[in-house]
Nucleic acid binder design. Structure first.
Lengths: 198, 198
DNA sequence: TAGAAACTGACAGCTACTGTCAAAACATGG
DNA sequence: CCATGTTTTGACAGTAGCTGTCAGTTTCTA
């Protein structure tokens, strides 16, 4: 993560444009809602043409949907010591990444979350990304055992973990503060215990 | 399930129209792909106006997305004897419903699955429905214990189960035959064992 | 510094989707 | 059977997301 080597001028400009579009989009979404903000408005605010907007983001949804953290978390999980359980490896991995975010990054993250929790359309696509994350997680866990993420066993574990995180996230309209690891840890603990009984 | 009491003529006609739209839509999607089939074409084929199409299905996606089976499965789970484990209750519930489908219903179901497995847009919305299913499943499992589905414990279990089913479904481009309970059962078995070790 | 490659803006076009309104199909009481 | 009110429908117009083209500009490279 963190690409701080903007080789050419072209790259730097692109990154700047990209950021500008995202910022303005986020702001406008908050101010007037997602649906009633047009791409034209975003483009205008970011001082680009509509065509340019769509060159940077294939759809209006994508402007708010990109998540840069997944790969970092995966890396953190892979580097967890082998004696740690899979569940703990996930928790630790997430914590190690989130603990290092600046307040500003946190803020942006929370704004994003809030918006797409409230727009079904966006929620659906975010879910899709989480399912894709199952692949990565399965792989990460498998690596810790020197196995392959293709194996059913790891897909199952990864699926269950992601499923749990998904299931406890939105209990209605509550604000979801991702810092609330307590809840996640608690839930995963329950999973570890309960499922083996009866 | 199975509404065979079409009181008035109006109701009967509505059901017929609804069915016609879905049938033609499915066929056209198969013939020319989802994206390149317009609502206009569907409406024309079903001999209704575009307005009418949108009165029956809020969006083009909905025409293929509705799933009538979830509530039935939930009912089947609730009626499982208490000594059966949660995992088995889910497996049995699904089996009891799917085993009673006619070949024709199976066929329609498989066609639907195939289409929206291949269209990311549809996949995303289908996922959303599965997440909604977590609520229902949590409730069903809780009922078996005379508890409430609101309790974290049941949300966790339901989330994990749904997560597993999601995770093992699409191993690439394979045709997904929902009759393949073997895989599902195997996966859920692994969940029951593995997660408690280490 | 010249030419190649990438980026951009303006424009035109398609399609999903919404709203309105009058006509048609159905239901119901006399 | 008919007049009534209710529901459903079609035609039409309009908005907005998204795609494609093409010429002009900016950046890179030799």
């Amino acid at each position: 993560m963190t690409s701080s080597l903007p080789a050419g001028l072209r790259e730097r400009k692109k990154a700047k444009t990209r950021l500008a579009i995202r910022e303005h989009a986020l702001r406008l979404f908050e101010e007037q809602g997602y649906a009633s903000t047009t791409v034209e408005q975003i483009a205008e605010a970011a001082e680009v043409s509509q065509s340019t907007f769509f060159r940077y983001f294939p759809t209006k949804e994508d402007v708010i949907l990109i998540d840069d953290y997944d790969p970092v978390i995966v890396a953190a999980i892979k580097s967890q010591p082998p004696q740690v359980s899979h569940v703990q490896a996930l928790v630790n991995g997430m914590r190690s990444v989130f603990d290092n975010l600046t307040e500003q990054e946190w803020d942006a993250e929370r704004r994003r979350q809030r918006i797409y929790q409230s727009v079904p359309e966006l929620r659906a696509r975010a879910l899709n990304q989480m399912v894709l994350a199952v692949d990565m997680l399965a792989d990460a866990l498998a690596v810790r055992d020197d196995r392959s993420g293709e194996e059913l066993e790891y897909r199952v574990i990864a699926g269950a973990l992601v499923g749990v995180v998904l299931a406890i996230a939105p209990p209605g309209g509550d604000e979801y503060d991702p810092r609330d690891f307590g809840r996640i840890e608690q839930a995963l603990g329950i999973l570890e215990e309960k499922l083996s009984r009866r």
